[in-house]
Simulated assay, not measured.
Amino acid sequence: MDLTAAPSSPAASAAPLKVAVLLASNREGRFAPVVSDWFLSRTAGHSGIETDLVDLAELDLPIAHSYRPDAEARARLAAVSPRLAAAEAFVVITPEYNHSYPAPLKNLIDWHHTEWQAKPVAFVSYGGISGGLRAVEHLRQVFAELHTVGIRETVSFHNAGALFDEQGRHKDPSGCEAAAKTLLDQLVWWGRALRDAKAVRPYGS
């Protein structure tokens, strides 16, 4: 490999970061769309980001039991795998189920490997008294195994159902909006830094 390869151009470095937002819940009657709509309204005002919402409720992936999927699994994965591969960063929006995160999210994670590597991942969680933070702590360990860079700052909604009005607007948004800005600023910094680094030296080489 040519270690003297030129770094990415200033234009490429300044290009908006491609962020896949993973909406983890697929339960009927889920609260997830309220949280994702709120979060995407925050990303819409951030010039450094382009988002792609990956809603697990719209996927129908078979259980990941092998890294050699059959023809049916390959067809289903074709709808989502290229989107993960194209992403330069991830934000996971997750509830907390039984002190952890939803099974469909683990299934999506386990079907993929290189798609996650050397990219930053941030977390937005919601739930009862814990605000989904126990799910986030489990996810940090899983994504670390997949060679991601975890963003320290989170956005968490404790007793989430009481925080939003009937139109999905947060009743007291100052704190969560500030947390979202910090999360996104850190995500963009790491995303651009890793993008530039991989342009000079591919990850793992």
Results as ranks from 00 to 15, higher is better:
D2R: 10
D2K: 01
D2N: 14
P7N: 05
S9D: 05
S13R: 15
L22R: 03
R27T: 11
E28K: 13
F31K: 09
F31M: 04
D37F: 01
W38S: 12
T43Q: 02
G48M: 00
G48F: 02
G48I: 01
E50L: 00
E50N: 11
L56M: 07
E58S: 13
I63N: 07
A64Y: 03
A64C: 15
D70T: 13
R74N: 15
A75W: 09
R83H: 03
L84C: 00
A85C: 03
A89T: 09
E96L: 03
N98P: 03
S100N: 12
A103C: 08
A103Y: 12
P104S: 00
K106M: 07
I109M: 05
D110S: 09
W116M: 08
W116A: 07
W116T: 06
P120Q: 13
G127K: 01
G131S: 04
L133H: 03
A135P: 00
A135F: 04
V136Y: 11
E137W: 11
H138I: 11
H138G: 09
L139A: 05
R140M: 02
V142P: 05
F143R: 08
E145A: 15
E145C: 02
H147T: 09
V149D: 08
I151G: 00
N159F: 13
A162E: 15
G168N: 10
H170T: 06
P173F: 05
P173E: 08
G175D: 09
E177Q: 13
A180S: 08
A180G: 05
K181L: 06
T182L: 14
D185H: 05
L187S: 02
G191D: 08
R195V: 02
A197P: 12
V200W: 10
V200I: 11
P202C: 12
P202Q: 14
